[in-house]
Design a protein around this nucleic acid. Structure first.
Length: 587
RNA sequence: GCCCCAAUAGCUCAGUAGGAUAGAGCAACUGCCUUCUAAGCAGUAGGUCAGAGGUUCGAGACCUCUUUGGGGUACCA
């Protein structure tokens, strides 16, 4: 919407510049491109066209050119509505926000929760892989950033029309899994989640920690774990049985955590099943000369031309490696559900791994290989430094969510709003989730971030609950309006009454929402949505504080303002859905 | 050693294709609850955008070098 207005102004200005060039230079070739910007302050207009670049060809100062163009625009026959003024070297435009508001209102009403979506990716099938936990410990803060990104990215792609398949690959096999099993065998005394009352993933996690302690005392511990892995691979029934039981415990715990955090998947893949895939593909590639063998029979790929070095794909004993499995898994997934592109949400420390993986798939000749994308995110560190499981500084996901929920509940109680809120537990949980998702998605994904526990539990300022609070305020305004202002509701919406600077600004920001959704998908960056939400909320917050809505001087103004509230409220809800912030009607 | 990424207010972060006076939140200080929820609003203070060159009419943004920090470079995952 905003884009269309921008383009029409850009077109007419470009046309006038070209015709002026024709007049004075005899040619309109080789002119610099017309650039559109947003002026730094609202009173300077809504669009800005800097004219510096035209100074040279016209041998004229930009301010004079601005004046000249302003006159020509005003005399032009077909021009968009709006006011033109020359501000120094800029040509600024004040657009007709009243017309925009009318159009916007109709669109938001008819599209509702679909406002802001588009069909730019409607022919696309996209796999988004994320989470991918090990089954030897509970989820921690690192997983939470991953999960927030995965869920949000999936929602954003779907909002752009893509058909999205969320996929989780459970890392339930390997020597690290055997460690917790071994420790359990030695020290477990038949303990179960039921007998101990400990959530399954936490119980297994305790034995993983126990192994580390034991390994310090007994140098054969590591070796025993390796032996157990071999027994597992050989199908030893006793080992398999224990593995199955402990895996189930962990998975029960993880499912519970996922549910509490609003995370879910369309498909689960299990490494215990996929670890064998890939070897055949590598051997096929070897036959075709894509890979080569060393003297010890290990299989390699030479990527030195791509500056990626040489990489082992099969061990000398013929067994698979991590990269081998990923090759197989990608191919298998494409058979399961032929995707157009595949996004891997994985930490930035694996950037090299994914470059190699994508290159290998390309060398194997899969045409979809060029549409694989590593959504790389930075590490979550603590103010003191890195999280270290050995030093017990890892932030546990369940505990964090529980403590945030408790804080939210306390907050509601201290305000005496238990009654209005309705379901206290559900509301507290929703506030905790909103705070968490917003905190984690606010930072540009690729960057490392610092998780400050003290700050994360604050519900003031630039936080999820701040945004939720705006929603709750609008919600109660709208409820009151419906209940007490029926006659006003019947009045037509007169957008020309919305003339305040903040009203004009709100209309522009609302109209910019669809573009934010597009950009978030293009750039694979949910933080564009969180930034958008904050801008909208902050603006609205000031607006309703300074200007009465239901107590506005005239009924027609009440009607106009409530229409604005309705639009802001709808866009807020729509954007919430993209970044995992629950919408609350009361808090 | 080689490769990749980062550096913006005391702290945590924004900063759109290079454009007008570099913005928020937190922390500090000041006002505002007989008026739609104060999880709020308004204000004060806080900056040599790590440093040095370069490109440009114009650089926090682009290029080069330097410094500092992080990550990778396993027949681990």
């Amino acid at each position: 919407m905003l884009e269309r207005i921008r383009d029409s102004w850009k077109t007419i200005i470009a046309k006038l510049i070209a015709s002026y060039a024709q007049e004075v230079l005899g040619s309109a070739n080789d002119l610099p491109e017309v650039v559109v910007e947003v002026p730094p302050k609202p009173e300077m207009g809504d669009l800005a066209f800097p004219l510096f670049a035209f100074a040279k060809p016209f041998r004229m100062g930009p301010p004079q050119l601005a004046v000249l163009l302003k006159e020509r625009i005003e005399n032009a026959e077909h021009r968009p509505f709006g006011e033109v003024f020359a501000t120094g070297p800029y040509l600024n435009i004040r657009i007709d926000t009243s017309a925009l508001a009318t159009e916007l209102s109709a669109k938001v009403r008819s599209e509702g929760s679909g406002f802001g979506t588009n069909d730019s990716l409607s022919s696309q099938r996209i796999v988004v892989e994320f989470s991918c936990p090990n089954t030897n410990k509970p989820l921690h803060l690192g997983h939470m950033r991953n999960d927030s990104l995965g869920m949000s990215m999936s929602a954003i792609l779907a909002a752009n029309g893509a058909s999205v398949r969320r996929v989780n690959l459970i890392n339930n096999r390997g020597v690290h899994i055997c460690k917790s099993m071994l420790a359990y065998q030695k020290f477990g005394k038949g303990e179960t989640p039921e007998s101990s009352g400990i959530k399954g993933d936490h119980l297994v996690g305790q034995y993983y920690v126990r192994f580390a302690q034991w390994a310090k005392e007994d140098p054969t511990a590591e070796e025993q774990a390796q032996t157990m892995l071999k027994a597992w691979e050989a199908g030893d029934p006793e080992v398999l049985d224990l593995w199955q039981r402990m895996n189930d415990w962990t998975m029960d715990g993880l499912y519970e955590s996922y549910e509490a955090m609003g995370i879910d998947f369309d498909a689960y893949y299990w490494e215990s099943e996929t670890y064998k895939y890939g070897k055949d593909e590598i051997l096929k590639g070897l036959d075709r000369g894509v890979f080569y063998t060393e003297e010890d029979n290990s299989v390699w790929v030479d990527l030195t031309e791509s500056n990626l070095d040489k990489k082992v794909l099969l061990r000398s004993d013929g067994t698979s490696l991590y990269i081998t499995q990923d090759v197989g898994t990608a191919i298998m997934r494409h058979k399961d559900w032929p995707f157009d592109s595949h996004i891997y949400v994985v930490g930035s420390e694996q950037q090299y791994h994914f470059k190699v993986l994508f290159k290998i798939l390309e060398l194997l000749g899969y045409e979809w290989a060029e549409h694989l994308y590593h959504l790389s995110y930075g590490m979550v560190n603590l103010p003191e430094g890195k999280m270290k499981s050995r030093e017990g500084t890892v932030v546990d996901a369940d505990e964090l969510l529980a403590s945030l929920t408790a804080l939210a509940e306390e907050e509601i109680r201290s305000k005496g709003r238990e009654e209005q809120v309705g379901d206290l537990k559900a509301t507290s949980r929703a506030i905790a989730l909103g705070a968490l998702n917003y905190y984690l998605l606010q930072v540009t994904a690729t960057k490392d971030m610092i998780f400050n526990p003290a700050e994360s539990i604050s519900f003031n300022g630039n936080t999820g609950p701040y945004l939720q609070y705006m929603g709750a305020r609008m919600s109660s305004m709208l409820a009151k309006f419906h209940a007490e202002f029926q006659e006003v509701e019947a009045l037509p919406f007169d957008s020309s009454l919305l003339t305040l600077a903040d009203e004009r600004q709100l209309i522009k920001v609302l109209a910019g929402y669809p573009e934010a959704v597009v950009r978030a998908a293009e750039q694979h960056d949910p933080s564009l949505i969180t930034a958008y939400l904050y801008e909208l909320s902050k603006l609205f917050s000031r607006y309703y504080h300074d200007n009465p809505v239901l107590q506005a001087p005239t009924p027609t103004l009440v009607r106009a303002r409530i229409e604005l509230v309705r639009m802001v409220n709808q866009v807020l809800q729509n954007a919430f859905a993209l970044v995992g912030i629950p919408y609350l009607t009361s808090m």
